[in-house]
Design a protein around this nucleic acid. Structure first.
Lengths: 242, 242
DNA sequence: TCAAGTTGTCTATGATAATAGACAACTTGA
DNA sequence: TCAAGTTGTCTATTATCATAGACAACTTGA
């Protein structure tokens, strides 16, 4: 196969191969730790020169999805983060439980006013002052999700600054005297990543994302924060437990 | 901008430009008949050489999405097919009503056995022999949808051959003495086109599709065929009428 | 009629993509 | 130990991608 044979699609052959392998990793045909087929074998299945396969594997290795071992083979590095959806879910605990290092980082914090929908979720009046926090969460160095969090600016003054310092939603709430909270209504849908989130999640454009809208409640059931999160679908797996 | 500047994404610059323009057409920023910006202007907005823009426009023109007029400009050709969802819908009639030429083509016909779900839809027993027809439908030369159709192999022996000859689901059913039928349960969802359908629909990978599951019934309400159709979302617009 | 703006076509150059072959360096299992 | 199989690294060739400049052919509106 040559570049002409792709009907001049404008997509490089090595990219097609890389996407194919990545899809295989994403949908589980190649699991974490698995050995990929040899470069020659991949070249044959895609009807491509071995060097083209090497280009594809190099691109995947650069992103940390695979790791090549000379003389042995190329192995899958990536593994999906199992994300249980319990009443009490803490990102740091979930990530830590898998032996990975959780990180949080503030992207942006700003003042906002409640739309009717946000007000209803938070039990506030439409137009009430809110703090909007745009944050990203990572496991080791892999971005897992970006989320937009809204909370009352009157109940949590300067929340953006506090979150920026603590890098944790849980610790930020502790700062305001909230020792514990639990998950309220949660809606899960899917979609395609937009350009902004793609850059933040280090995802190619067009990849599927899991969209989660959730509101966290205090122990009395009063809404604390409402979140709109976008997870890289290929890096996380929601687990619903009874 | 040069190829290196795209961070070696493996996607040609002209393809990015073409996809951008096509998206503009798909989401209505450029309507049918509209004049696109001049090649120089497009080149500036994408920060690309004019020749690269010409390559993109040539690719779009080849697919019939735009038409270049020397000395005047480049105009949008494509228009979305309005697809009314009535009880009695015939692809050929819908396309013909818009002054376009309907076509049907058999991709593949094979024997299959009914899964529990298919059997329920068709009112058959699980494991009953089925004919599976993979077909594509076009308006003029533009692919609109691909659909997988299942029907009883006992009630419609050799259905694949008949469909291949008539190129029409309606005429195929007429061959078995069924003069009329109507649409039964219809479920519409959305998704991302897979590689196989993308090639068949002449769609770039990652584009959204409308997924329609429907069962056609005879006049007594007995199931005849059940279909799983994938429409190119950017070329068709379902219209629900009261 | 004419100037401005449009698309069409040509030549040219450098960088990248894809192929091909050969061999080195290394791992694994017999 | 050794053979087979793996990844790593060279050189080399051809086609495509992207840029650049110039000019022709054509349309439009003043």
């Amino acid at each position: 196969m040559s570049m002409q044979d792709t009907a001049s699609s404008g997509v490089a052959l090595w990219r097609l191969v890389a996407d194919g392998i990545e899809r295989g990793i994403a949908d589980g045909r190649f699991a974490a730790g698995d050995k990929l087929p040899g470069e020659m074998e991949i070249a044959e299945t895609y009807r491509v020169n071995r060097h083209t396969v090497r280009r594809a594997l190099a691109a995947l290795a650069e992103r940390g999805l695979v790791r090549a071992e000379r003389g042995s083979g190329t192995y899958v590095e990536a593994q999906k983060l199992a994300y249980p959806l319990r009443s009490r879910t803490r990102f740091s605990e979930i990530v830590g439980a898998e032996g990975r290092e959780p990180h949080g980082r503030l992207i942006e914090a700003s003042e906002d006013v409640a739309t009717r929908e946000l007000a209803r979720e938070l039990g506030l009046k439409t137009g009430a002052p809110l703090v909007r926090i745009e944050a990203i969460r990572l496991a080791d160095r892999t971005p897992i999700c970006v989320s937009t969090t809204w909370l009352s600016a009157e109940l949590f003054p300067g929340a953006g600054t506090v979150f920026s310092a603590t890098r944790s939603m849980t610790k930020m709430l502790e700062h305001y005297g909230i020792s514990d909270y639990r998950r309220g209504a949660t809606r899960i849908t899917a979609g395609i990543v937009d350009a902004t989130d793609a850059a933040r999640l280090d995802l190619p454009l067009g990849r599927p994302i899991l969209v989660v809208d959730a509101t966290d409640l205090d122990l009395e059931g009063k809404p604390l924060v409402t979140k709109h999160s976008r997870f890289a679908a290929e890096r996380v797996e929601f687990v619903v437990e009874p």
